[in-house]
Design a protein around this nucleic acid. Sequence first.
DNA 1: GAATTGAATCGAAGCGCTTCGAACGAGGTT
DNA 2: AACCTCGTTCGAAGCGCTTCGATTCAATTC
Lengths: 333, 333
Amino acid sequence: MITIKEVAHHAGVSMSTVSYVLSGKRTISEETKRRVEQSIVTLGYHPNAGARALASNRSRVVGLVVPLHSDQNMPIIMRFVSSIVARARDHDYDVLLLTKEAGPGEAHRVIARSMADAIVVMDVESADPRVPELRAVDAPVVLLGMPDDHEGLSCVDLDFATAGRQMAGHLAERGHRSIALIGSPPSVYERGTSYAARLLAGFQGETAKRGLLATVHSCAPGFDAVSECLDDVLHPDRRTTGLVVHNEAVLGPLLLELRRRSLDVPGDLSVITLCPDDVAANLPVPLTSIAVPAQELGAIAVEMVMARLGRELAPEVRLLQPLLTDRGSTAAR
Amino acid sequence: MITIKEVAHHAGVSMSTVSYVLSGKRTISEETKRRVEQSIVTLGYHPNAGARALASNRSRVVGLVVPLHSDQNMPIIMRFVSSIVARARDHDYDVLLLTKEAGPGEAHRVIARSMADAIVVMDVESADPRVPELRAVDAPVVLLGMPDDHEGLSCVDLDFATAGRQMAGHLAERGHRSIALIGSPPSVYERGTSYAARLLAGFQGETAKRGLLATVHSCAPGFDAVSECLDDVLHPDRRTTGLVVHNEAVLGPLLLELRRRSLDVPGDLSVITLCPDDVAANLPVPLTSIAVPAQELGAIAVEMVMARLGRELAPEVRLLQPLLTDRGSTAAR
DNA sequence: GAATTGAATCGAAGCGCTTCGAACGAGGTT
DNA sequence: AACCTCGTTCGAAGCGCTTCGATTCAATTC
């Protein structure tokens, strides 16, 4: 293993000079810098992370708590992870993979052991049991998702309430008077998943305000469940003409089932959804949708965490405003 | 921060004694051990990972290279990740998240910097460009997937050739004489995805051996592509009675299209597939299938990597034997 | 020309841990 | 009584890096 000492010797300078070339924390003459960098390349030097962490009291690692068993939304979770890793690397940070399933102690463990300098937590729920423990973690913590009680914690999320309002409004403006929200399986609501509840609240607020007839349906994944749910949604009494779908896993089967029933989108039924843009665009019928800006949310989370690494910074909640893309799956009536 | 020194002082022993209590590398009297453990709890001591890594030359971290952009199969990728993290934690190892997209240098980087002790690589392809670089990494490396040239590297994978044979055999034994393999889109084969090619080889070997009439079809996702593909598969000349599907994305649309054509499974057509068990079970028609044992594959990968951490061990290829679950979607004729 | 300044570099003291040889008794052997 | 053994424990030397004065030397100032 090549050490900084060997580099120093090879370049004819002291260890500290090499260190300062690497960190840029003191001015080094161009000439010396060049020689040192040359030696580093020639010898193939790689700084030892453990030694660095020990001496500097910084690991250059962020811990990321990922829900690995989450029954659905895997693709979108991956998008978050992917953007978080990429942004972290931009800051020359690596990502330590922690799982939600391993329990709440994990964040504390990696911080206490100085394995990571900060924590990003995904998939935070309304009444997330992890919140108290996270509040006690002695390092910057940023949550993706917004628990009801987020005092003292920094959060980033999409403004789901506004999204719910927007989607209901979009249909209302096109003359729909009876619309339905197809949401996640009951388990998701029971678990108190914050985003589901907030979207629901926004949806119901808007439909009430506009005096629409609105129904809400939980839907499990799988063809049978979808078919059953549709039976319910399309009950003739209600003459439902618009669907707001907040359940990515169900989109494919739902469109299949509509086709099977010879219901045209948007001729017979208008459909609007909230899901990643490429999912909405690549369905059998492209859907008008609000995107979950996973990329941006992840990037913001990393920025927030990085900003809090050096200095003490007040906790902050950032709600991204939804953006609606019209793909022609909603019609006027 | 509580250090081992403070623990030692509190327990009235030397630092080294505390260290040995923690590592178990030397015998310590019951009495002393008890006192030290008590002090650790009382003071809330957590060993500093950097210091430990520096002194012991071991990071207790494994690097995991994950394909984060892979457009499909996210759920199954998560299954792998999840089992790998869990098994690694069983060995008191943490997982550093590296992305396939960040390029091949990543594995080398984290090893050279002693950020990780070993590497697990997911989603390895036939002619994976990463293979040469991985071979040069100075640490245990285990691949999930089997490149054509895997000399000097350890690999774990499902035995796709046998799976192809089994599925063809399963239909043959039920009296089918003309069967079709519906595979992935051409792009997958062109990319040289190792598993697709191996399954194909097994399938063709078995059908040849048994003297069956066998055709092979690439199929893109989407309704139209599936319908077109089916036109081809069901060409009257061949009187195809059995389908082997190796393309998870196509399963739903395929079954739907068969239904639309009033073809009963398994009455008119027997279908067998390779996909995760819960996918096979939750389709409109539950399908007899071979599962991808992600859990086991991940666990084996971790075991292999751990086994290679202490001692020098020869590279090894482990192919898990496929397990077929009958869900009644194939009939005798 | 002595004093001051400032840029560039050096030296050494840690950071918190592991590990190896040495030390120390107590008990058993000759 | 001198000598081993063996089970426990201690001391100290690093592991490779960062960082904080201290130092050097040339340029500038009075």
